[in-house]
Each structure stands twice: as structure tokens, then as C-alpha cells.
Nucleic acid binder design. Structure first.
Lengths: 231, 231
DNA sequence: GTGTGTATCTCGTTC
DNA sequence: GAACGAGGTACACAC
């Protein structure tokens, strides 16, 4: 990895056109040829960038560009899409290279998958007398997160989200429509379960006869811990 | 901005838990206190990070940690959510600080907005005899990208996307449902227009009687150039 | 402020 | 490899 702090302007031409006026920025050149242009603020997203696979070509500025103060031109071209990023370098304040090696990568732990597991293990949270049929119940248009049966034996399709949005209600609606055509399953009622359900989503769901269930992740983990300790 | 290349391990505890095993990485400390942990590959997303507003506290390792080879502990805490990122620093290979100043920011040019403008200007692309009513036609549930009339005088609602996905079809369906209840507008037919329409989205759209229209952005820009030159 | 829609989204997983 | 869903999504814009 090469780190360059330099006064530069940047032009991107690809899926859109974008321009960065002259300012001092960090240019991060990764060993796969990719380039990130970072400012000293904002979030983790660079101001501009080129994703791998791509290649860097350094060239000399022409006379006009030299007069303007440009000392080097970096042209980064994407291997497949022909997107281009052109960095016009003025003054370089820092330039260093470092060997980092391959990264072992991130180990993640629990979000929706964990919620699904917890709800499946504590299916009574759906209501008294509910039994689990299975997780990831496959339909022609995709997997339903949880399929259960209620006390009366009716099928219950559960769509799980961390944050319950209108999209999730639409998704569940499509599943319900399909599943209610299947005589083995029908009647199927829907439950929209999430840690947080947005008002618009709740409105839409309830308008369509879908029950909303707000889940308390921490409380569910507590249940899990208790269960682990007891058995 | 401070740049540190160091052997480190990283633990994040917040909306999820994540761990990065010991390896050499770039630690980018921005002046707003935020921290990015980058490896020498992948795209612009850091392996781990803390977004502003947050604060960094440097502390000394305890005896056990010193024995393990840890020389410094960085604890980055988010001001509001209390998310925490803990960086255990082993060997530091590089450490430099730089003054960058405030960035003037990115100037973007055209994607969906440009597509919308172009289609509105060349409304005949919808079919012969079509006339524009208006762009961003407001309804109770949001703006329809383009409202037009076809040769027979029927209303045409156009939903525009760069990439036509199932979500876009759902969105247009909601608009159509609402607009068809308005006697001033009904009957309203739908057109789903995008540079690329995914098979599933096309299927869903056509099943609902929505016409799909694939747009050629470059050709449309060509039309625009010609028009600009002629008039 | 919150809510909504887009993204040069990125990143996984599945088919 | 394509497609689909999720994200510690981020980001801009409307209300």
C-alpha cells in the first residue's frame, strides 16, 4: 500500500461524471491497483475511488498543465468497464509505501440470522400455542424466514427484519399471496417481526391484515442464556 | 489526519459484534475523531470503522496484554450510540500526521435525474403520440417520476430507474393503484423504464400489465446533443 | 429533526 | 456468473 498526501484535483468519468476541485487529500493506492481519495472528515466513504480490478498509469503533464502547477497525472482505468479516474497532482506533501500482506478478514457475529434462530427457538413469542414448522421455508419466489402454525392449526408466515420497512411488508405480501394459493398451506396468516417497525410499514401491514410484532433482541438473548443455563 | 501502519487486532461491539485477528493494517484517524481500519485490498469499504461523532482514548495495556505483545490500546466510542471499537496495537511501522483542511467536496453530474430530464424532453420514446404532462407529479404517497398522456388521451405513469428491480415495480404498482382511484386521471397505465431491467422485475411488471421500456442512456444523450446543436 | 429514495453502493449467498 | 437480499449501509433531499 502506498500513501500519498498531495494537493490534487480529481475527475471521474464512468457511471456518472464527477469532479473534485483542488485541495489537499489522502491518496491510498492499494496493491490491487485500486485507489481511494480521502478527505479529513466525513465517514468511511472516500470522496472518490476506483474499485479493482483496475490499473494505474502515471504520466507527465503537458505544457499548459505544467504552467497550471500540475506535476504528475495519474490515470486509473477499470479493467472491464473502462471507467476512468484522473488525478491531477500538484504538490506532494508525503509519500510512503508499506507491506501489509493479506488480511485474515472480519469475523462477524449475529444480526438477522441470529434473530431468526432466536425466534425459531422461542416460537411462543408469536403467541400461545404456536409451533415451528421450519426456518427458511422455500417458495417459488424465495424463502420465507419462518413458517409456523398457530393454536388453531393455521399456517403462519413470518418475515423478519432488523428494521421493519415498507419493503419487508411488500415482500411478505408476495409470499402470502402465493402461499394462500397452496391448498396444503392455506389459510396462511402473516406476521411482520422486527426490532423496530416504521409507522408507514405498520400501517401498510395492518391494512393488509398482517400482524406486527416488535422483537426485543436483548431480551431474546436473555431467554437464550437462561435456556442454556437451565438445560 | 493521522496515518498509522501497525500490527493490530480490532474488536467492534455495537449493532453487531465483529473481530479482526492480528495483522498489519492502516489505521486512518480523521480530525473529527473517526477511525478507519483498512487492509491492502478490497474496495473502498474499510474492514472496520467508527463514524463521527466519536472520540478516541488511548490507554496502556495491562500486564497480561503487555505479555501478549500489545503496546497500546485505542478505544473509539461513538458519542450517541455508545458503539465501541477497540484497537489493540502491537508493533507500529509508521506514524505520521498531516494537515488537510476542509474539502470543497464532490461535484456530481447526472444519473437518474439526467435520465428523467432526457426522457421528459424526448417523450416520444414512450411511443408515438405521447405528450408530457409533468415531471415529479405529486401524489399522496410520493412523486411519480413522469406523468404523460398517450395518443388516446389515457394517463401514463412512468417510473424511472437506472437498474430496474422488483422494488421499482412495487413502487409503480402503488402509484397506479392510487392514481386509478382518481377520476381525473383514470385510466392510468404504467411504464417501467430503466437502463437495465432484471428478469424478475420484468416478469412481475408484465404480469401486472405494466409495460417495460429499456432506455439507452448514451443514445438519449446523443439525441440531446443533436437537439442542442439544431436549436 | 425524521422519513424516504438512491447509490460509481459493497458484500455475501444462492442458484 | 447472475441475481437477490442485507447493510454498523451512507447520503441527499423533502417534509
Amino acid at each position: 500500500m502506498r500513501l500519498v498526501i498531495a494537493q490534487c484535483s480529481v475527475d471521474y468519468a464512468g457511471r456518472l461524471s464527477a469532479h473534485l476541485p483542488l485541495a489537499t487529500r489522502l491518496l491510498m493506492l492499494k496493491s490491487d491497483g485500486s485507489l481511494l481519495v480521502h478527505s479529513d472528515g466525513g465517514s468511511y466513504k472516500p470522496l472518490n475511488w476506483m474499485s479493482p480490478p483496475c490499473s494505474l498509469a502515471v504520466s507527465q503533464p503537458d505544457e499548459l498543465q505544467v504552467e497550471a502547477g500540475i506535476t504528475e497525472l495519474w490515470t486509473v482505468t477499470h479493467a472491464k468497464t473502462a471507467d476512468q479516474l484522473i488525478v491531477s497532482i500538484y504538490e506532494v506533501q508525503h509519500d510512503s509505501a508499506h507491506e501489509l500482506g493479506v488480511d485474515p478478514g472480519l469475523i462477524k457475529d449475529g444480526v438477522e440470522a441470529h434473530l431468526q434462530k432466536l425466534l425459531a427457538e422461542h416460537i411462543h413469542l408469536l403467541g400461545d400455542g404456536h409451533t415451528l414448522v421450519r426456518r427458511e421455508y422455500m417458495t417459488a419466489i424465495g424463502p420465507v424466514d419462518i413458517l409456523a402454525r398457530d393454536a388453531s392449526g393455521a399456517s403462519v408466515a413470518v418475515e423478519l427484519k432488523r428494521r421493519g420497512d415498507i419493503d419487508g411488508v411488500e415482500q411478505l405480501t408476495r409470499y402470502l399471496e402465493l402461499m394462500n394459493r397452496d391448498p396444503h398451506l392455506a389459510p396462511v396468516v402473516g406476521v411482520f417481526a422486527a426490532q423496530q417497525i416504521k409507522p408507514q410499514a405498520r400501517m401498510l401491514a395492518e391494512d393488509r391484515g398482517i400482524r406486527c410484532l416488535v422483537l426485543d433482541y436483548d431480551a431474546m438473548r436473555g431467554l437464550d442464556d437462561t435456556a442454556s443455563k437451565l438445560f
